[in-house]
Design a protein around this nucleic acid. Structure first.
Lengths: 269, 269
DNA sequence: AACAAAATGGAATTTATATTCCAGACCGTT
DNA sequence: AACGGTCTGGAATATAAATTCCATTTTGTT
């Protein structure tokens, strides 16, 4: 009855998972992916919960367990319950542990960046200004077309926004300045500009904003401080301060605001 | 029916435990002691197992749970199971609700996304694999040139990497596929490919990786799951699982790994 | 387009587990 | 030692979960 190879350790389990997942039908692959990403949940969940998480029927999850070499879910769960010795350390313990590795391994760096990101996010919650945000959303929701601008370190954010708007069926263009063809004249009255820019502000972005304001096009600017020269230009500012680690800026908080804007505008349309 | 004070956190649970254990009959005291010494087992054990461990009958253990303020063992267990998985709420269903109450302030949305980002980051600490990471760093550090590829939702990450490498003076090219000029032949032996791709994988990226592997160029792939078809291609996988709601993915964890890679490679060069 | 094989969803069944109940044991008091 | 109360063990019951089964759908092949 019992398959020749039922994994006996977490390591064997992972290997087997990778091995079988190369050729697996849709639903079973969903199971494999969910399990891979949530191994720790197996010990404390029911089949029904795991199945729901993976987006499949319990019976499908059951079949997955059997393909993995177990007689059923219970047997698979037993493996994880047993290897659950003393639980996993909590966030801070884990952080310290990784930090110790500092020089030897890149894992030490991960700890620092995770911490910087987390601090940025928490800080964001404290400092976000709901009125400003709502005002920005309503400006963008009214626009017939949103022109997104952000270069250098802001470019990832700008492209993220472009992707999110597209997914939400909000008309938007990413001005990527390819070939230095600044499609400035694509901006028409009734449109709005969404600029992402951190100090030092790139000239292109500042000029783009200036040109838009000169024609009374509304501009929302995602930036890093409220005391910004951008204010002079008459842009609606949304400021986010990120916690840096070394010379590097985690974009966690900025992306958070970005996706919020996108979703809020998308649902309001 | 429910006692006025049922502990809601592990801390409250401990306090309550100490409080009641001052005056407790023999068997119930055994329960209290066993529980205090084996808190972590509650999440993964049955009443029968806990009772046996404490050296009492299941019914006695049941009574203990009730004295602690829970309706029964199941309710007490829920507390520990939930705190174990570290609250990774079901965002998929939450988004559905989000759309319904669309009109509300965007500030509420921010909180949701901050929470998603935070969960992603904490989960990253749990699942990061230092060996894999170091292996990836050493592959990239050896490369004469790093070719970065990532489209659609992965493009923000790819462009972030390009920026970071540039700042660290690491030779790198972002393959942005402008004009569909896939500069595939720019990849030379001695170089390496760094691909960022999440399911569903874009054809261009998969092809790019395939072409590189066919010429024995090492490939590091930043992806969302360990059970990926990319493994077949012989790429070195680094997997990051993000809290994801449909089209809306917080990229916090992915960017964290990205910047780590960039800085680690930069300092190793 | 027709067919066979594989995969899937949902309900039915089985099994495990939690929970309740109560008769009897124990304990402190008079 | 007799009485009230509390505590305890074990079996009986209720509940929830795992597992199986099969009709239906999907997929791949000719």
């Amino acid at each position: 009855m019992s398959e020749p190879q039922a994994p006996g350790t977490a390591k064997e389990f992972e290997d087997k998972l990778i091995e079988i997942s190369l050729a697996l039908p849709k639903r079973l692959r969903q199971c494999a992916q969910y399990v891979a990403a949530n191994q720790d949940r197996i010990a404390v969940s029911t089949v029904a919960e795991m199945a729901e998480g993976a987006g499949v029927q319990p019976s499908a999850f059951m079949r997955f367990c059997q393909i993995m070499g177990f007689s059923g879910f219970s047997e698979m769960q037993r493996l994880f319950r047993e290897s659950y010795v003393g639980g996993w350390p909590d966030y801070t313990t884990r952080l310290d542990h990784l930090r110790e590795k500092g020089g030897e391994s890149a894992a030490g760096l991960v700890a620092e960046f995770v911490e910087a990101g987390r601090a940025s996010l928490e800080n964001l919650l404290k400092t976000v200004n709901p009125q400003e945000l709502d005002a920005a959303v309503s400006i963008l929701a009214k626009a017939e077309m949103i022109h997104i601008m952000g270069l250098r370190r802001s470019f990832p954010v700008a492209s993220y926004l472009a992707y999110a708007f597209e997914k939400m069926n909000v008309p938007a263009i990413l001005h990527d300045t390819v070939g230095k063809l600044d499609n400035r004249n694509a901006v028409r009255s009734g449109d709005a500009v969404l600029a992402v820019t951190f100090s030092p502000y790139s000239d292109e972005t500042v000029e783009f904003i200036t040109a838009a304001r000169a024609r009374d096009i509304p501009v929302v600017a995602l930036t890093d401080t409220t005391v910004s020269q951008l204010r002079k230009l008459g842009a609606m500012l949304i400021s986010v301060s990120e916690v840096d680690f070394g010379a590097f800026r985690s974009l966690s908080a900025t992306l958070c605001i970005a996706i919020t804007l996108a979703v809020a505008v998308g649902t309001k349309k």
